[in-house]
Design a binder for these strands. Structure first.
Length: 136
DNA sequence: GCCAACGTTGGC
DNA sequence: GCCAACGTTGGC
């Protein structure tokens, strides 16, 4: 199983919105690197749900429930979407400053390529973030 | 609101 | 195929 991080502006699509809907189509990605990451997601892969612009924190974990298919929000065949559902909200969100302050997380894509909206997360980073969140 | 970093577009 | 101009993202 692989790990990922997706970004959302809470004003546009919040964690609570995802929980309310039960699941959602993660569409609208218009960047090749992010698109390639979407295409590499497998059913059951786990994702951190990060708030950009406001919040600046990882609020919880979601998972992939449907692998990539053509993005329904555009006619352009280049772009794809996946379906995700919420798994768990962190009791304590992991803020960007916490991540920046953690030695094990200095290589995170979130730090080094902050504009990428769909990012891979390695196992070491995944565990380190869970630790910061106070989760097991 | 500003601006750095990055991606995309289009002229040559 | 290069690169300048422009647009967007996202942290501060």
């Amino acid at each position: 199983m692989a790990y990922w991080l997706v970004k959302s502006e809470p004003a546009v699509y919040s964690w609570d919105h995802l929980v309310k809907e039960g699941n959602t189509c993660w569409s609208g990605v218009r960047n090749y690197a992010a698109r390639n990451n979407l295409m590499n997601m497998k059913k059951g892969d786990a994702l951190f749900f990060y708030y950009s612009n406001e919040g600046l924190e990882i609020v919880g974990i979601a998972k992939v429930i449907k692998e990539y298919y053509p993005d329904p929000t555009t006619e352009d065949k280049r772009w794809v979407a996946v379906d995700i559902e919420p798994v768990q909200k962190f009791k304590k969100p992991v803020t960007l400053s916490m991540i920046k302050g953690d030695n094990q997380l200095s290589e995170m894509v979130l730090i080094n390529n902050s504009r990428l909206s769909v990012q891979p997360v390695n196992r070491k980073e995944w565990i380190a973030v869970l630790k910061l969140a106070g989760e097991k």
